[in-house]
Simulated scan of single mutants.
Amino acid sequence: MSTFGAAANTNPNKSYEVAQPPSDSISSLCFSPKANFLVATSWDNQVRCWEITRNGTVVNSTPKASISHEQPVLCSAWKDDGTTVFSGGCDKQVKMWPLTSGGQPMTVAMHDAPVKDIAWIPEMNLLASGSWDKTLKYWDTRQSNPVHTQQLPDRCYAITVKHPLMVVGTADRNLIVFNLQSPQTEYKRIVSPLKYQTRSVAAFPDQQGFLVGSIEGRVGVHHLDDAQQNKNFTFKCHRENNEIYSVNSLNFHPVHHTFATAGSDGAFNFWDKDSKQRLKAMQRCSQPIPCSTFNNDGSIFAYAVCYDWSKGAENHNPATAKNYIYLHLPQVCFCIRHACLSKTSNLSSSHEHI
């Protein structure tokens, strides 16, 4: 079995390292939709924010502020105007942090179990929170009670929103699709095309479907329209020799609508679903990548390199498991997207129609 050696390279892609990273594993990353402010949540109960500046191909990071939760923080989201950050986690609550005004964080959502994922829905001016208590709740942050509580078939693992489409991935491979124009009823319930536990979901930019990633090193491309089911397929990724790794993060590029995958094998790759091609395979880091995100114009790709707990506490060595956040400039690949397509591997050799 391959292992992540302490002396191995955590930064083989020569990305820019973010200053003063969290002291424990990083659970989520999100960029402001308006400016290059990056927020990270982590298992050390903290939510941190950095200002990212870029001069040509040189990128710098400056720690700006942080807040604390009572227990590990699992998820984060920005308000669409870039003024406010939401964070949720094992203390069963979501905090709202008015970052730009320097205000104090306040609790705006509560659950009966840890909050696993959250999403701000600007078209509704509501926050959605999904929990291991098997509920999805919608919140008007000015009120103490949820606007609506939606029962889920199992624990929430991941949420993605591209209004009016919302997809919630739960335990037992359920994928619950909502039309947010009628948010109190399920639009469709789908059994994942992947055979094992859902780890990540991402709505298509055109709202016509979604990606789903699982712990088995595979991604499913799923269209909602029954007439487009022949376009559905799955493909293998984040595998090496006989080792199979979780697909922890799926991120669509905000401009080109290509997408990135990041996995527990320590690799991140860029793909084009429409041509079924891999655009770029990056070098494997020496620790897992638990989360990743693009900035608002897609010129910076942020990813965390740290222990992701997929091999349990018994395989965690605090002396060697350092935590890093890196910033990669992917524009070279995306600017020459069509040139890349003619040279890179074709998914059609490994994809499966479902």
Rank of each mutant, 00 (worst) to 15 (best):
G130R: 02
G103L: 08
G82Y: 11
A109N: 07
D112G: 11
V85P: 03
T107Q: 07
L99T: 01
M106Y: 00
Q104V: 09
G89V: 10
H111V: 04
E123M: 03
V115Q: 01
M106A: 09
C90S: 12
S101D: 12
V108G: 08
W97I: 09
A119V: 01
D117Y: 02
S87H: 10
S131C: 08
G102K: 05
G88Q: 10
Q104M: 08
S87W: 11
D80L: 01
I118S: 06
G102H: 06
V115Y: 05
P122F: 10
D91Q: 10
K95C: 06
G89K: 08
A109S: 12
D80S: 15
D81W: 10
H111F: 04
S101I: 11
C90F: 09
M110F: 00
G88F: 12
M110E: 14
V85H: 07
D80Y: 12
D133Q: 04
A119Q: 14
A128R: 00
D91G: 12
K92Y: 13
E123Y: 03
G82C: 11
C90V: 06
S129G: 13
W97Q: 10
K95F: 02
S87F: 15
M110Y: 01
I121H: 07
V94S: 05
M96Q: 15
D112H: 12
Q104F: 02
N125A: 13
V94I: 13
P114L: 12
Q93Y: 00
W132E: 08
T107K: 04
W120N: 03
N125Y: 00
S101K: 14
W97G: 04
S101T: 15
P98E: 10
T107F: 02
G88K: 10
W97D: 09
